[in-house]
Design a protein around this nucleic acid. Structure first.
Lengths: 352, 352
DNA sequence: TTGTAGGCGTTATCAC
DNA sequence: GTGATAACGCCTACAA
């Protein structure tokens, strides 16, 4: 086993010495695009193998300009929707020869902003924010500032599954029709004959995802001339337990709904469990719909009617647009469609 | 908006100029641990804010030694088990002040090796391989070489959910009792009275996960003196579709099993769907068990009996051990326990 | 075709 | 307390 110079990590110099050439020549052989004699190339490559040399990506980035790194910031890795979109981000980034940094904020908007800063230190070429976010005045302003910060250093803020921040903000936005999907699935329930439809949401209405989905729910009622009982709109977190708790509470106070819209499939799975535990049958007694169409939705009990989002394409498009944007275009915006997937958790309301 | 020197990205020099101090002083203020007069510190911090300066992590790593980066390499982000373990990796890495690089190999062992190289270029402090892997002669040898390569440059190979490579290989291993879990859940089926238990696996037997789980399945039969019909052992991929296909094929050729062990919960969900589509009831006609206890297992139809793995702790321990290892300890090994979670998909066999 | 010099942004070292 | 200088590992001039 050859002993390189100092630290243990061989450098171009070590390779150069071993191959009896200059560091420049080594760099050229490795770079590929420069004329080097066959014999020299051979000697260099041989030395590279002998020393088990790999290039130092940090040093290369320092001089070469780009780190070839894409960062994605997400609520958590376990949420199936985030994972699906993240998958798209990773696939496209890899396809474009980039490596991926990940970090999670667990729903804390301030932490999200911190993470963007961290990714700016890492010189990420693009910072992809996956999933919905807060949309308060102050948070929006800080987000806009950050977009400008990134832009100034040649990086790019990408919103993936979240609406644009504002007209003059340099950012790439790839979203899906959140409100449209919620409208469609609520409208479907109304068309089945439901009139008392609960909405089990998550977080404050300032959160873009809950906000837009609640908006679609409301709009569908309005469009059909069905009045909404505000008592039927409840809110918790984006997890299964929350769906369970909210539903149990609704039942406890005799809300009398014949259908439930879960803000996500994960929440809807909690809703299903709560109804089952209360001795109610789905869909005979209560219909349930979710949102996201995560991998196991079709295997739930019963198979969940939900709204399909083009997860992977969302992530792919985010990276593709961000890396190939026209340098002069300030903002980019892309909207992908959603559609209702009808399964077994919905039916016309029974008598009660 | 202040205009920094050249590129657009302000540097310590820009900050130094703006604050009327030297670059060294700026570095000291930012570093924190060095005496600097209050007034100077204030001027520097002010300049930092004005210029919207953030440190260049690449440059710092170049001189400072460490990138403070942990890499994790995983089959894919969508697989719930990988996501859960990855979550643990990310949480612990963040807790230790590291950033996370992620990449996916989609089950291709050669790609996995390439990715480790890539992470070595990135100077990752540790490279965590999440999930099972191939264990052929040649692959094992190459993996051992890579472990040495990483070790030589002060990095660390971490196997998370995979057995050790060999005694003299510098690596950190955090695994769970794969075989024990499979033994326990198979033994449970046998104790219920099942004698014809199918095993729906994935990949070649050289894959550590399938191998160990099949081993536990076999051992349980042996221990109980139950003979195995090799016809009942089939194999495909680690996804739902594969579980569906294999089960349908088993039924088509009249395998006559009264229970099925799915190699993962994802596969088991496909098994459930296939049985349902064939008009069989679970658990009355056929019992089904999975492995992993992924988030929605309890919500499947029916709720899945499975083997619980300490997902998050697996990931956390991997990072913790790798970062705090004794410099002199060659290999580290930790084994976490598993346990059977009994739900509604299992029952004594009916008559047939 | 090959080599030399300089600099990327940061910190450690040594001087003041 | 503060500043100049020399590295870190690589690449892009420019020169031979």
């Amino acid at each position: 086993m050859p002993r390189p110079s100092s630290n243990g990590r061989p450098t171009v110099k070590d390779v150069a010495a071993a191959a009896n050439v200059s560091a420049t020549t080594v760099s050229r052989v490795l770079g590929g695009d420069y004329p080097v004699s066959a014999s020299t190339r051979k000697r260099v490559l041989r030395a590279v193998r002998d020393l088990d040399y790999v290039i130092n990506a940090q040093a290369r980035a320092l001089v070469g300009g780009s780190t070839r790194t894409v960062a994605f910031v997400v609520r958590d890795l376990v949420g199936p929707l985030f994972a699906c979109i993240g998958q798209g981000v990773e696939l496209q980034a890899t396809a474009e020869g980039r490596v991926c940094l990940v970090s999670t904020h667990h729903g804390d908007p301030d932490r999200e902003l911190e993470l963007i800063e961290l990714m700016r230190e890492q010189q990420a070429e693009a910072v992809v924010l996956v999933g919905g976010g807060l949309r308060t005045e102050s948070h929006t302003r800080r987000m806009a500032e950050i977009a400008h910060s990134l832009d100034r250093v040649g990086s790019r803020l990408v919103l993936c599954g979240r609406p644009p921040i504002g007209p003059d903000v340099p950012a790439t936005v790839v979203e899906y029709d959140n409100e449209g999907g919620a409208f469609a699935v609520t409208d479907y329930l109304i068309s089945l004959g439901h009139r008392r439809i609960a909405f089990v949401g998550a977080g404050e209405p300032e959160h873009t995802t809950t906000g837009a989905r609640l908006g679609g729910y409301t709009a569908a009622h309005t469009a059909r001339g069905v009045e909404i009982d505000r008592e039927l709109i409840v809110s918790g977190n984006y997890d299964r337990e929350s769906g369970y708790r909210q539903t149990t509470a609704l039942l406890a106070r005799g809300a009398g709904m014949t259908a439930v819209v879960g803000v996500t499939d994960m929440v809807a799975s909690g809703v299903l469990a709560a109804l089952r535990d209360a001795g109610l049958r789905v869909p005979e007694d209560v219909s349930v719909v979710g949102y996201d169409d995560i991998p196991l939705s079709a295997d739930l009990n019963p198979a969940l009617t939900t709204v399909r989002i083009p997860h992977e394409e969302l992530g792919r498009a985010a990276v593709r647009l961000a890396l190939h944007r026209d340098e002069h275009a300030l903002d980019q915006h892309m909207m992908l469609g959603t559609h209702v997937v009808i399964r077994s958790s919905t039916a016309p309301p029974g008598r009660h």
